[in-house]
Design a protein around this nucleic acid. Sequence first.
RNA 1: CGGGAAGUGGCGCAAUGGCUAGCGCACCUGGUUUGGGACCAGGGGGCUGCAGGUUCGAGUCCUGUCUUCCCGACCA
Length: 404
Amino acid sequence: MYQSNLISKTRKQISQTEESLNAQILIKSGYIEQVMAGVYAYLPLGYKVLKNIEQIVREELNKISAQELLLPALHPKSYWEKTGRWESLDVLYRFKSYYTSTELALGSTHEEIITPIAKNFIQSYQDLPFATYQIQTKFRDEKRAKSGILRGREFIMKDLYSFHSSTDDLDKYYELVTQAYLNIYKRLGIGDITLKTYASGGTFSKYSHEFQTISDIGEDTIFVCEKCNIAINKEIIEEQKTCPECDNSDLIQKQSIEVGNIFKLQTKYSEAFDLEFTDESGVNKPVIMGCYGIGISRLMGTLVEVFAVNESKMLWPESVGPFDIHLITLNTDSEEVVKKSEELYIMLQKEGKDVLFDNRNERPGIKFAEADLIGINKRIIISSKTIAQNGVEIDGQIIPFDKI
RNA sequence: CGGGAAGUGGCGCAAUGGCUAGCGCACCUGGUUUGGGACCAGGGGGCUGCAGGUUCGAGUCCUGUCUUCCCGACCA
């Protein structure tokens, strides 16, 4: 893609009141625009990153046989009343149709939708287990949206639900999801700073688990066991003062961003919706469920927080950057530069690379400054100077044309 | 929801209660320039968030309201 065709422009300055680093960089670089507090538009560059993150999540979940679907964002009141969460879930957006006065909710999470759907397809133990997920916009009426795209009122989330005939089977799948999540964070380049974290388990199990990425701006406080490479959320530290895996009491306090959570629902929702199966001996039992979330847009914000060099310079992991290569020409008044760079642009595309091609007739400084902001991991510079050496510049080195 | 700060061209900011609301960026025209957000000349773009009030006179003071950011509380 030609950079001159991008619909967005970089900005030199944004409001000084915006303190969030991810918002600063993403707005300056033209990845996102704020529409209102906690609600952002994803512009072409930002949307590409979001799609790339989604794709990694999708690939890893498909590997553990989860099937993708798409549930509605608009929900009837009746389903939420069945679980009592019409009243109890404070972040649920509830409203009336202007015309019919029908009461509706915007989906904050989808147990209330997936469980009655699953009821149509689960009769026997032979129908189990299965797992299904979606990547979709979620709505939560946060009292205070904050930290750019880390805590919004509308955000993109992957939510996975699994259905089992036994707690053993749930436990096995729970471990598979744990591994899939760890693979996802690894592929996103944050594997070494993202820890499985023990957190409060709610009513039915001792713990749930979160995945926490270490970052000073994180809202969560965790205690890290460096031997096991796991952590404990501060919320359970009173009851769990040592590592649950090795009993180590030498834990290190860190701030972190929650980038995923996994939860054994057991029969909470299957009982609410009367979701049962018939077991081998002909007895009807409630289906055992698990739910597993990853905030896709929050992950994007987390990557900015982790990989930003400063408020004007970003460096995306190769796996999710908006383009594979940023091809930049200098000296565009030279016919040779224009010709060689066009050839290179075509060649790279033939190699299957997604290239952002900056062949604009601008001074070098502005091109470099914008490239720093956009943050594409691989940069190729072609200019009169590099052509004189029969090559291009990559990472400060001259690479001959035939070696590119 | 409680507290704090702030709303002025597209963006970032300035303007003792007093003349026609300025500056930078961006934009348009012409010229120069080209390895780190260049320069010269000219130009377009504003009922100062909204609604009241005080005053001879309000961007500026007062009241209300909306919005945004920050701190706190909250966060299945």
